[in-house]
Design a protein around this nucleic acid. Structure first.
Length: 111
DNA sequence: CAGATGACCGCAG
DNA sequence: TCTGCGGCCATCT
């Protein structure tokens, strides 16, 4: 049982952000992954919210496919309708409820 | 320094 | 399938 919380030092926060950007840059075209999964791959589980923050305030780099990141149920980022357009252009299918068909496009970072 | 916020998550109901 | 709620934790007010 966890009776205390590990807090990030500034240096760890820097590495965390770098790891997030690195992971996102590896998402294959036509596939998506989740904030929580990225946090886990970055070795900081439970920091899914920080992943979202990192991407929201990250500089819009052309080589950073942050549009391939959705939440656990496949919902796209609020206030960014263009994300769906970008994904559909890659062949990503959306279900009638407006969510990405995760069973078909979820990227698990297989090596 | 206390309370609110969010590109989140998972479990009920 | 959808909504609500509690938990989460760095930031913001």
């Amino acid at each position: 049982m966890k009776d205390y919380i590990d807090r990030m030092t500034e240096n760890q926060a820097r590495q965390f952000r770098a790891a997030v950007l690195n992971i996102v840059s590896q998402i294959p075209r036509g596939q998506v992954t989740t904030y929580g999964h990225i946090a886990t791959l970055a070795e900081w589980p439970s920091h899914s919210r920080m992943v979202g923050r990192t991407l929201r305030y990250a500089p819009e780099a052309p080589d950073l496919p942050c549009h391939r990141v959705v939440n656990a149920v496949g919902r796209t980022a609020p206030g960014w309708s263009r994300q769906r357009t970008l994904l559909e252009a890659e062949g990503v299918r959306f279900k009638p409820n407006g969510h990405v068909d995760m069973s078909r496009h979820l990227w698990e970072h297989f090596d």
